[in-house]
């Protein structure tokens, strides 16, 4: 029994997965300017993983999704968040030192390179949400014991 979809769904998935991914990356990168941010953008990018899993089937996803890599990347995302929070540790935890006197990310408010550690944290949280949810859904899809 093949668990992948027909050719129309597959072709549409090929076209849509990059679009969803780019839109999710846009939400994550512009988290400090427009509505959205790490959690929302990460959950949007998870849509690509779900679409891939549903359209191409579990067997195809098994070749692509490496669970060690994904669990490692989830930890890395959390560490990016913590590292950005510790940048201003000489003054206080979660002190936005990049915004007040940092070398980068201190442009005019409203530009992409502004807001101190907020873009870095958005990236970390987005990476964490994406890898975490994809690995959870993938584990759920591999758990298939309907009989017995």
């Amino acid at each position: 029994m093949s668990d992948d979809m027909g050719v129309i769904v597959k072709t549409n998935a090929r076209a849509l997965i990059p679009l969803i991914g780019i839109f999710g990356a846009y939400i994550v990168l512009h988290g400090h300017l427009t509505p959205g941010g790490g959690f929302q953008g990460g959950a949007t990018i998870v849509g690509t993983g779900l679409l891939f899993l549903i359209a191409f089937g579990v067997e195809e996803a098994k070749k692509v999704i490496n669970k060690d890599l994904y669990s490692a990347l989830e930890g890395v995302g959390g560490l990016i968040f913590l590292g950005a929070a510790m940048l201003g540790l000489s003054i206080a935890f979660f002190y936005n030192v990049l915004w007040h006197k940092g070398p980068i990310f201190n442009g005019k408010p409203g530009t992409l390179l502004s807001a101190g550690f907020l873009p870095i944290m958005n990236l970390g949280v987005g990476l964490k949400v994406f890898t975490g949810l994809v690995s959870a859904v993938f584990a759920l899809s591999l758990f298939r014991r309907w009989k017995k």
Binding site: H32, G36, G37, N96, W99, N106, P109, A115, L118, N122
Partner: peptide, 9 residues
């Protein structure tokens, strides 16, 4: 904070 998005701030 520097971000235009107050919720993210």
């Amino acid at each position: 904070v520097g971000g235009m998005n107050i919720v993210t701030d």
